[in-house]
Write a protein that binds this DNA or RNA. Structure first.
Lengths: 257, 257
DNA sequence: GCTTGACCTTGACGCTGCGTCAACTTGTAG
DNA sequence: CTACAAGTTGACGCAGCGTCAAGGTCAAGC
């Protein structure tokens, strides 16, 4: 462990954080926690900002969120302190859930010792730990939100099908535009980006500046499209995704704040 | 929800326990939580004893144990109350870990607000939640124990290779015996079962009666050999595993307590 | 300089515990 | 009978890494 370190090697971070270098490389590969620099030797080094981001990722991971959802959540949380305060609240809820679970086990023990009958209704209190994942996803992130919440159900079958078709059409148009060789700064690309941002803005729960999706949110999401092959697949692969990212970046620079 | 129910359908249990019928069917398939009865309609029904077992399984699952390890742990814990007390202790440790994690996040927030430098060494306190899995596995279960603990490391490379060869030879002999069509109650099967039980007894940490492995532990393990295809594969498949189970059961009936 | 062991990289296969889906049966109410 | 809810079995597929192979870098010791 280096005294006065301003950054840390992958193994140092893995040890500090109770995780593995494999996990960290994976998180880099998918763009979730990039190292702050790559040394001349090709090694990854992580600075404080990277550690802070990792802390937040590990917390959300522990809540059961998948990687795309975490990316979405983090893209939507612009202020570190505010984000951590929100996560603190969730940890406190988790603490309560655990306390309830402990109480359940205590009751089971007492019931067994008294030779009484178990009460099925309350022997699993505190056992459901998926609620926080769903809650976090619901609160942040257009894409997760669109598929998991009352708003989605409220669309009804026809509305859902229309939404899906809107997304599919947008994706097809992005793929075609990327294949046509136009510039990400062109008028056509601009129009597609506008459609994309409008689509994002049509779902509740995403960060906004005024009526429009927040610039940083859009930019962060665009980066994820490239870094995670699952997103990139929507746009025909890495090249297409890079085109979408560049077009969105150009659009955001001019039209979002 | 049926009043005065003495058993519950799969969906009722899934809802009570905050899990899914898929999970419950899976646990049945691998022999971890069998239903207490199958109705004339082919439906699974679970009584109190099954719910109690499920409670314990879900707790261990939440600690991060895999299914084979959980089976091993549960096979080794003969007294429900004692087992739950042990699990209560682990939940309390988890509670402490969570409190430490919360303190870490609080420190991070304070540090960011004070504009100070983050201390890498303690910003991840409480983040490592694998320790309980390893501890539980270490404490119970011959098979997990044999591969993950100081005892295993203490064998040295040669000792480990010999142990592995002993297991492989035993498995080969079981497969051959099953294929030869001998009776699980025969003298030959008896000798193999004796070798198997001696092998189990040669590893530390398994439940014992006197010097010998405890009967219930052996019987429980034998059932798992059949129920989980991963175990069964050691014995040439389901038929071979059933033979091993029957031979162990016959041996245990006569020679273990 | 060479050796050795720790640490790092990329690439890639594989695993576990279900999620999801299809096809079908059972139960119940209208 | 119909429709819907609840259940079955069978089977494919997935996410997030774990593991391994092959190779390079670093640093200490001889």
């Amino acid at each position: 462990m280096r005294a006065e370190a301003t950054d840390w090697s992958i193994q140092e971070v893995a040890r500090l954080a109770g995780t593995t270098s494999r996990t960290l490389r994976h998180y880099d590969d998918v763009g979730l926690v990039p190292p702050s620099r790559i040394g001349a030797n090709g090694y990854r080094y992580y600075d404080e900002a990277a550690l802070l981001r990792l802390q937040r990722v590990l917390l959300l991971r522990e809540l059961g969120l998948g990687i795309p959802a975490i990316a979405d959540v983090i893209a939507g949380q612009r202020d570190d302190r505010e984000a951590l305060r929100r996560q603190l609240a969730q940890l406190r809820q988790e603490q309560e859930r655990l306390a309830r679970q402990i109480a359940s086990v205590e009751r089971t023990i007492e019931t067994l010792e008294g030779g009484e009958q178990l009460m099925a209704e309350n022997m699993f209190d505190g056992f459901d730990h998926t609620q926080y994942r769903e809650e976090v996803e619901r609160e942040w992130g257009a894409e997760a939100y669109a598929t998991s919440d009352a708003w989605w159900r409220g669309l009804g079958r026809d509305g859902q099908a229309a939404f899906r078709e809107q997304v599919a059409a947008l994706n097809r148009d992005w793929i075609a535009a990327a294949a046509s060789g136009i510039d990400p700064d062109s008028h056509e690309a601009h129009a597609l980006a506008e459609r994309h941002v409008e689509w994002l803005g049509s779902t509740p729960g995403i960060p906004r500046t005024g009526d429009a999706p927040a610039k940083e949110y859009v930019l962060g999401l665009a980066e994820m499209y490239v870094a995670d092959p699952r997103f990139a697949a929507n746009y025909g692969g890495a090249t297409g995704a890079a085109f979408v990212r560049d077009a969105l970046a150009a659009y955001a620079a001019n039209r979002l704040s």
